[in-house]
Computed example of a mutant assay.
Amino acid sequence: MSRTLISHAQLQRGRGRFLYWALLGIIVTAFTLIFIGPLYWMVTGALKSGQELAQTPPTLFPRDPEFTNYIDAWNNLNLAKLLFNTIYYAAGAVLFQLILDTAAAYALSKLRPVFGNVILGAMLATLMIPAMVLIVPQYQTVISLPVLDISLLDSPFAIWLPMVANAFNIFLLKRFFDSIPEEIMSAAFMDGASPLRTLWSILLPMSRPILGVVSIFAVTAVWKDFLWPLLVMPSQETRTVSVGIYAFAAGTPQNVVVAASVIAAVPTVIIFLIFQRNIMSGLTTGSLKG
């Protein structure tokens, strides 16, 4: 029997059982309100009029729900174009990360190049650098790409290329590859399979859960990012949904802006609800060897 903070005998007693379930209920309810509260406030705020949204103290429920706010947000803020741009950037980020980060993790885990541990340590050290510190050098690189001397402003590569260098995803993939028994690799090499064929035919089919996690991380990173797309996508035609909503917010009623935020959040919520099992299995798979 596993040991816990509260003994099994105490949980069987009337008072101990009541205190345990009461405390558990309070904690679960509190955390549920903390996480669901802002979402509820956003959804209900999009149904209020401008006056009711700015009212103090705020109302808990909309007095007269205005579903036309969502229609106005879709039409006035050109959300179809903004969502298409964001989906396009997210798809490219997923593709680049799956190809390049997987190759890097496979090399570090199974091919073990010279100074591989030094390279991995240097990559992990970049996780300690605040992202804001890298904004200026990354922007200088984008406006004048070294050697080629070309500008990537308003180009999707300005978003894709910085996302490829993701040390966390490489480490996550490497840990998963480390959990795959070496006997599988040895058997593949004895059958004449090249390292690339082994990766494609054996490791990748086994890595679907962790590849799903990396894909979700890439999509959410593009979807929620604001400052970097604001800098490298100045044109109205290339904006992401977060930058587009911000750009139109000044001359748009706040209830319509909130409705646009709800629409922008729906795709990521749907993706999470569909792939939540893959996310949990991918994060736990490979945590233990054997």
Rank of each mutant, 00 (worst) to 15 (best):
P162Y: 05
D149Y: 00
V118T: 13
L134W: 06
Q140W: 00
L134S: 14
P113W: 07
L111S: 05
L161R: 05
S155N: 15
M132I: 14
A165E: 07
L145C: 00
I135F: 09
N75D: 06
A93M: 12
I150F: 02
S109G: 05
S151Y: 05
I143D: 05
F115M: 12
L120I: 05
N166E: 11
V147S: 01
I99W: 08
I99K: 08
K81S: 10
Q97P: 01
G92V: 06
M132N: 13
V164G: 05
Y89N: 02
P130N: 14
R112G: 00
M132R: 14
V136Y: 10
V164D: 07
F157P: 01
Q140S: 05
L82D: 02
K81A: 09
R112E: 11
P137Y: 06
P162N: 09
V164S: 06
L153Q: 14
A90D: 07
I71E: 13
L95Q: 10
L83C: 02
P113A: 06
V118N: 05
L82S: 05
I129F: 12
T141G: 07
V164A: 10
V136Q: 13
I87H: 02
L153D: 08
L124W: 10
F96R: 09
L153Y: 09
L100H: 03
V114M: 09
I159F: 01
A131S: 15
L152V: 02
V136D: 07
A122Y: 08
L95N: 11
T102D: 07
Y88W: 07
F157Q: 13
Q138E: 12
A165Q: 10
P113N: 08
L134M: 15
V133Q: 12
L148K: 01
L127Q: 15
I135C: 05
W160L: 12
A91K: 07
K81M: 02
F115A: 14
S151L: 02
L108P: 04
F84V: 06
I119D: 03
S151N: 14
I87T: 11
L79W: 02
L77V: 01
M163G: 06
L108N: 07
M128W: 13
A93C: 15
L120Y: 11
T141W: 07
I99F: 12
L134G: 11
A107Q: 08
S151R: 09
A105T: 10
Q97R: 15
L124R: 13
I143P: 01
A158S: 15
D154H: 09
N117C: 00
L152K: 03
G121R: 11
Y139C: 02
M163Q: 13
A107D: 07
P137F: 04
P137M: 08
T126P: 09
I71M: 10
I159D: 04
L145W: 13
I135G: 05
